[in-house]
Amino acid sequence: MTTVAPPTDVTRAPRTAARNRRRTGRFAPYVYLAPAMTLFTLFLALPIAYAVYLSLRATKVSGLGLGAGAKTEVWAGFDNYARALSDPDFIASVVRVGLYGLLLVPTMLGLALVFALLLDARRTGAKSFSRVSIFLPYAVPAVIASLLWGFLYLPRVSPFYYVFDLIGWDAPQILSSQLVIFAIANIGLWGGVGFNMIVIYTALKAIPSELYEAARLDGASELQVAWRVKVPIVTPSLILTFLFSMIATLQVFAEPMTLRPLTNTISTTWSPLMKVYRDAFVRDDIYSAAATSVIIALATFVLSFGFLRLVQRRAFSQENS
């Protein structure tokens, strides 16, 4: 009868080491993710949760509101949301931002696509210089760009108005109530074309050159190659840039806020985020500001998600094929 010897320390050690390595490897991804998740929780998730909490609260004033305990924080439910959605200032700001987006986004993406196609053309010279020149305005902060353009809009200090006066032309008042939306859109256009151009141009450089050569052998001109080969292939990049531009449009703040001291045609509630700023830091109504912020965030999410659902088949058909 054969007997099996019990495992010795020599044979047990490799098994224990392998088990420990598997156990360590199981927790390794969480160790790498821990710093990012900690920062996400502290600086994004918790502030969002606190804003939602504040949007459901309100201040109750007792008597004349003087003395300790005269103002108490109470539960308000959805009253702040109802007041925000029925506020004429908020509705007007949403309409203005909608018009601003209709002016800015198609023009900006159209120019970005044209510049990217021109830089990708075979006969284009000085590509590096042109690429940097188009992208450079994006590197200028929005506040600085708004100040620069704001002084160019002022008739007393703008060199453009001086030239128009010498010629004898009547220059339009860019900061008037009818044209101020074009003035703000121009600043966004000046700064946003370069970024979107780089995204589209990068996608164009990833297209195999064999596709261009095959199209040219079939008799296609450069314009036909651009319209029928390049544009369809970079459609996912156009969708991405449109999504980013739409989100940036909903969050426009720096441009009108910087131009506001230069003219009286921009109100404190010109954009939804300006209304949030006024409610929080001018009127000291942090609860209404929190409710408006949550509404803006939800609207941004719904529009972004709805747009991606609408175009997902077109956007991801190339990746799935």
Rank of each mutant, 00 (worst) to 15 (best):
L103T: 10
V132K: 02
S130D: 14
A121M: 03
V157E: 03
P106L: 14
F135M: 13
I144C: 10
F151S: 10
A145I: 08
S177Q: 04
L113W: 08
G77M: 00
A68Y: 15
I167H: 07
Y138K: 04
L66K: 03
F90N: 06
R123G: 15
L104C: 07
L102Y: 11
D120G: 11
Q173R: 15
F78T: 08
Y138W: 07
D79W: 05
I174D: 09
A70F: 07
E73H: 11
P141T: 08
G67Y: 07
V143Q: 13
M108C: 03
V74P: 13
R131Q: 09
D87K: 01
V163L: 03
L118Q: 05
L117D: 13
A183Y: 09
L102Q: 05
G101C: 07
L179F: 14
S177R: 10
I134Y: 13
I144H: 02
T124M: 01
T72S: 15
P106H: 14
L104N: 08
S176Q: 06
L152V: 08
G67W: 08
K127I: 11
L118K: 05
L102A: 03
V94A: 15
L117F: 07
S128Q: 07
V140I: 11
S176N: 05
S128F: 14
V132E: 04
T107E: 02
I181Y: 14
A171H: 14
Q178V: 11
W169T: 01
P137K: 06
K71Q: 14
L154F: 01
P137G: 01
S86P: 12
L103Y: 00
D165K: 12
L119Y: 00
S146Y: 11
W169N: 05
L136W: 10
Y161Q: 10
S177A: 00
P172Y: 11
L148T: 15
V114L: 12
S133C: 06
I91N: 06
L117P: 03
L113K: 04
W75S: 14
G125P: 07
I134S: 04
F164P: 12
T72I: 14
Y100R: 11
R96H: 15
A126L: 12
L119K: 09
N80I: 09
L166V: 09
G101M: 10
A126T: 04
R122I: 13
G98D: 14
S128Y: 09
V105Q: 12
G69A: 12
Q178R: 06
R131D: 05
E73K: 06
I181G: 04
R96Q: 12
V132W: 07
W169H: 00
F182K: 10
I167Y: 14
L113H: 03
L117H: 03
F135K: 11
L117V: 04
Y161W: 00
L109V: 03
D87S: 04
F164Y: 05
L104K: 05
D120M: 04
F129Y: 07
S93V: 01
S133D: 00
S177G: 08
F129A: 05
V105A: 00
A116R: 02
L111T: 13
I91R: 05
T124G: 08
A116K: 00
L118H: 13
R96D: 12
A121T: 08
L103E: 01
G110P: 01
L85A: 06
P106K: 15
L148Y: 09
A82T: 05
